[in-house]
């Protein structure tokens, strides 16, 4: 379970990338997230685990203000990225999301060609000055997502025509293409078969070198395989957060122990 290399020492020394303090999220009258404090280390993978409806996805979505699109959702407390409060009125969510990309549960390529899917982000953010630069961004993003060899001959085919695993890697390539610093992944493998899942996990491990990755997962094995740090959410509360090794071998909280030993959830 613990074959993956771990770098707690290295990462814990650096300043945290994301720092959340006393975060509350309300859906209308429902208090969905209560008092969450967490520090997320740069260039590492942090996994959020917990039973369904525990608020882990909701919290993930507050990190790039995706909850703004939901009318009844309110966020309180402070979330800082590189020391800047992302809920500050001066912050434009559009710029924030260019810095904090997101990959979703179900692969959701746009009904466009593979090329256009990847080029979409750079185009809207004006990252390429000409076609050649755009081509570069597209090919390097696809390479980083490990998809280049599979699709380089059919870039003009629709992205929706690929297999589920390829689609999800296309979505990762699409997120990488706007060169974010943080990538949020909301159960990226839940719709995929084991082989495609293994590929994505491998990819996540490679991406760790350049990006801060936060992943929500249902599977404790996956959390153990890909992450350096793990946070356990239960009923909207962050129960425990620490190095993945510690959480899985030596949890401090009774609830965490019950969950990872399969007593509920």
């Amino acid at each position: 379970m613990n074959e993956m290399p771990k770098f707690e020492q290295a990462t814990e020394m650096t300043e945290s990338k994301i720092s959340a303090k006393k975060v509350q999220v309300y859906y209308g009258d429902t208090h969905a997230i209560k008092d969450v404090d967490i520090e997320i280390q740069p260039r590492s993978v942090t996994a959020f685990i917990g039973p369904s409806g525990c608020g882990k996805s909701t919290f993930l979505r507050t990190l790039n203000r995706m909850n703004d699109t939901i009318d009844i959702c309110r966020v309180q407390g402070s979330i800082k990225i590189d020391g800047e409060d992302i809920y500050d009125p001066k912050v434009d969510p559009v710029q924030l999301r260019a810095k904090v990309g997101m990959v979703f549960q179900k692969p959701n390529p746009f009904p466009k060609s593979i090329y256009d899917n990847v080029a979409y982000g750079p185009r809207i953010h004006g990252l390429a000055r000409n076609k050649a630069q755009l081509d570069d961004i597209v090919s390097s993003s696809l390479q980083k997502a490990g998809l280049w060899d599979e699709v380089k001959d059919r870039l003009s085919e629709p992205g929706t025509g690929m297999s589920g695993g390829q689609q999800q890697r296309l979505c990762i390539a699409r997120a990488i293409a706007v060169s974010p610093e943080v990538i949020l992944m909301d159960e990226p493998c839940s719709a995929l078969d084991p082989i495609a899942t293994a590929k994505i996990e491998e990819l996540i491990d490679e991406l760790r070198a350049n990006y801060t990755i936060v992943i929500v997962t249902h599977s404790m094995q996956q959390a153990a395989r890909v992450s350096q740090r793990t946070a356990f959410f239960h009923l909207g509360v962050l129960v425990e957060e620490g190095s993945t090794d510690n959480i899985f071998t030596n949890p401090e909280d009774k609830r965490t122990q019950d969950y990872i030993t399969g007593r509920f959830g």
């Binding site: 770098f7 707690e8 290295a10 990462t11 650096t14 590189d82 800047e84 992302i86 500050d88």
Partner: peptide
Amino acid sequence: MSDTTITPDTPAAPSSPKREFRSLYAIDDL
């Protein structure tokens, strides 16, 4: 936990690309 293996391309390695810091508070022209 100092006995963990470290591969050459560790995240902390100096070879990784260093981005210039762009503040979220500054709204750019685009």
